[in-house]
Write a protein that binds this DNA or RNA. Sequence first.
DNA 1: TAGATTGTTAATCGATTAACAATC
DNA 2: TAGATTGTTAATCGATTAACAATC
Lengths: 213, 213
Amino acid sequence: MQEKEISQAVVSRLPRYLRYLGELKEKGVERVSSQELSQLMNVTASQIRQDFNNFGGFGQQGYGYNVEYLYTEISKILGLDREYNFIIIGAGNLGRALGNYLNFERRGFIFKGIFDKDESLVGKEVRGEKIRLISELEDFLKNNTVDIAVLTIPKVGAVGLVDVLVDNGIKAIWNFAHVDLDVPDGVQVENVHLSESLMKLSYKLSRYERENK
Amino acid sequence: MQEKEISQAVVSRLPRYLRYLGELKEKGVERVSSQELSQLMNVTASQIRQDFNNFGGFGQQGYGYNVEYLYTEISKILGLDREYNFIIIGAGNLGRALGNYLNFERRGFIFKGIFDKDESLVGKEVRGEKIRLISELEDFLKNNTVDIAVLTIPKVGAVGLVDVLVDNGIKAIWNFAHVDLDVPDGVQVENVHLSESLMKLSYKLSRYERENK
DNA sequence: TAGATTGTTAATCGATTAACAATC
DNA sequence: TAGATTGTTAATCGATTAACAATC
């Protein structure tokens, strides 16, 4: 069942909407107009209405949007109304940090295991899960349902692992390695390139200083 | 000296260009045409030429681009031809992971200290720097030159800290807190919202499964 | 009913792609 | 000189904003 294709720009804004709606919800706010929300979030009311209407009408003329309802609907759109099992490949600092990040679980992302190629790490625990050797990965995937693999290993390792992951049922990869992964159709990838983000910051910083000296 | 405004879309692509050029450089490739690079990177040659020409002509008709030269020029544009001192606020898992990430130093980002409000962490070391109490932050900033603050603390703390940071000379904030920071003009912010990134992944995943069942 | 605010169409703006003259 | 490939202008495409009729 093919739905209307939603642009990447719209999707990228959804989590931010969810965050603001969550804050309103916590404050006990019941309804919000696109106008009010636009002032809060620093975007145009027009964009907000256009964005929401990509998914059908969530509001009511003369009233606005019901905060609770809108929050729930956007959660569903983002796929947050179900659970996902995830594993982490790479038990370095970043991998362990992500494993210990409790908020993911609140959103339905369940930590199922962590792997590394370094034998000296085996047996140590991250969030109650013993670190396993990467050589056990294939077996593990055959015996457990895992939806998402988080890659926090150097790029060489990451590229070589993709096949093992997708051949054993991984449907989505959250990629922290500095490389563009080549995956088959139907496997989703979301990249977090930290060093590229930092470079954008140094761009802004050095540009501002260049212009203002 | 006002330069032509460069769109955010272009800036976001620069680090990726740099990455591919670095790889070519390492392979010893001397020249590359926009055509070749476009195939490698999966973008149009037209876009590549447009992007580069925002900053002046780096190529030569009939020849293409010199890899080494182009790499250097893009590095400069990104502000990677100088050093930045940075501190980390928040010595939790993520903060410690970033402190230990050695590659930043290679790019000119120098780790100068890490702070936390938790007294029980004081004295422990991250990358050779003792964790300091956040109450010492102001003093520290007055006595040290720091360009960038990395915020890896919960959002409540982050919002309250911004004033202290900017009042004491911080020019740029790499923000990992789930909040939009309100900073004065001239202070640069780059956000890394990990949970929003993960939501984009669950969006793609659940959408794909919805469409293909 | 009158007022408010959505949903949606139309207008504008900006970014991407195509085309080609300039030039190495 | 002929061939290649850039730099740049023009055409297209898509995303954002504005406007307003529909409707609660």
